[in-house]
């Protein structure tokens, strides 16, 4: 697992934009409502790549995206991107 997101479900209004946009379909709508009566988005994080598209479309700004560093560096090394050395430095 390279990425992980966390959603503040009590502040989510259940608009479903993140559910729609997630390319890996790893965000679902919760079956139970939150305190405001909305059915919030729920992260399963199964197959999450940490692309942050959910966080970019979220109108409430309540999605936080994390990357697993080791995994990230491995991906960048494979892709051979010019910014790979910088990322390795960041980890060190």
């Amino acid at each position: 697992m390279a990425g992980k997101i966390s959603i503040d479900t009590e502040r989510c209004k259940g608009c479903g934009l993140c559910v729609m946009i997630c390319p890996k379909k790893c965000i679902l709508t919760a079956p139970d409502s939150n305190q405001n009566g909305y059915f919030p988005a729920q992260a399963t994080n199964a197959g999450c790549t940490g692309c942050a598209q959910c966080a970019i479309v979220c109108p409430e700004g309540i999605i936080e995206v994390c990357w697993d560093d080791a995994e990230r560096i491995r991906i960048v090394e494979i892709a051979g991107k010019p910014d790979a050395p910088r990322l390795i430095e960041e980890k060190a």
Binding site: K4, R11, A55, E60, E64, V65, C66, W67
Partner: peptide, 15 residues
Amino acid sequence: MKAVHKRTPVLKDCP
């Protein structure tokens, strides 16, 4: 884990 996208402090932390 390293946060790559989180709420900016310029946006107040309120609904």
